[in-house]
Amino acid sequence: MVSDEDVEQLYQKLKEDAESAGYHLNPDRSFVMGIVRGLLTNMERFGYMACPCRLPSGVREEDLDIICPCDYRDQDLTEYGACYCALYVSERVARGEDELRPVPERRGSRQGTAQQRQVGEPKIAGLSKPVWRCRVCGYLCARDEPPEVCPICKASRERFERFM
């Protein structure tokens, strides 16, 4: 069982991480606490924080794109002012200037996702280092391997793809 203390602790961490990187948690605190509890429940069940508003397969590799923050968060924030769960919201929604609205599911079928992942590895001659892209927030860095944790959105190394 997930304790209230764990929920509070993760909430504080997510809030700090969000604010330090220019993201915003939904100002509806009790709603967010419910989402955070869902994340911790999935952590207990699967060993990773799968999106609480989606049905995870339980296989980490298949669920990578929906480990929170999911690969779709930033696009949904731009288009709908909130991520799929409404854990993260746009600045306008956070300020109460825009209302929350339902966010349609952007995630394709699992097969589609797998295919997308295999889509080419563009190579540009003459680069001294490969360039890695964080699938979650788009952060780019040129180094031999991606960082352990994305410095912007805190996604883990396995969420990076070779960009150039």
Partner: peptide
């Protein structure tokens, strides 16, 4: 529904 989902709740 999903037991973890706030929109379901």
């Amino acid at each position: 529904a999903l037991s973890t989902c706030m929109w379901c709740k």
